[in-house]
């Protein structure tokens, strides 16, 4: 089964090895390791995403070993969401039931809103929301976006999409 793990580690030599060793011991087949040394977290740790093939039953053992090695396990589980898109909504985002807007994406089963920031300058003034949406694939991202576009037409919200998402 394909699994993904979001780890955080201290910025000191040998940490990555400490993170990968338990995976080897549990016969995990590593597919990719994304080591974001330039994107430190506010805690000063380095985020690393590992994608691997491994029996799910071994996950708890691996998590325990990682923690024992001083590696923080932020999230571990089935790798579902491979694609990501960011969008900006402008208008009466909150008044038009933001919870419902998010739910329309989340309820698809193939896409989820994973990050949300709001800016509300004042009552009665248009607010804006930044949304990060993850989905299981490129087509699913497009499906989620077309749902979002429809919802935003109904709610009279402006959807600002990223230019790089869909290059000609």
């Amino acid at each position: 089964m394909r699994l993904s793990m979001d780890l955080e580690m201290e910025d000191k030599p040998g940490q990555l090895l400490m993170a990968l060793e338990p995976l080897r011991e549990q016969k995990g087949n590593i597919i990719s390791v994304l080591h974001h040394r330039d994107k430190k977290t506010p805690r000063g740790t380095i985020p690393v995403r590992v994608i691997l093939e491994m029996d799910r039953s071994r996950l708890e053992t691996v998590k325990g070993q990682l923690q024992a090695n001083g590696i923080m396990v932020v999230r571990a589980g089935e790798e579902r969401f491979l694609e990501e898109i960011t969008v900006l909504l402008v208008g009466h985002v909150l008044d038009r039931d933001l919870g419902d807007t998010v739910h329309q994406i989340d309820s698809t089963g193939f896409a989820e809103v994973v990050d949300l920031s709001l800016s509300m300058p004042g009552i009665d003034e248009p607010s804006s929301a930044y949304l990060r949406i993850r989905a299981t694939g490129k087509d699913e991202i497009q499906k989620a976006m077309s749902i979002l576009r429809q919802v935003c037409v109904q709610k009279d919200l402006l959807v600002i999409e990223p230019i790089e998402a869909d290059e000609p």
């Binding site: 960011t86 900006l88 208008g91 800016s119 930044y130 600002i160 230019i163």
Partner: peptide
Amino acid sequence: TGITPESLILAHKRGYAVKLIGEVPA
């Protein structure tokens, strides 16, 4: 006309500018 300065700030914080883009053949 519907763009607000707050939305531009929100975009900028995440590494984006907002531009009016024309596209062909779309």
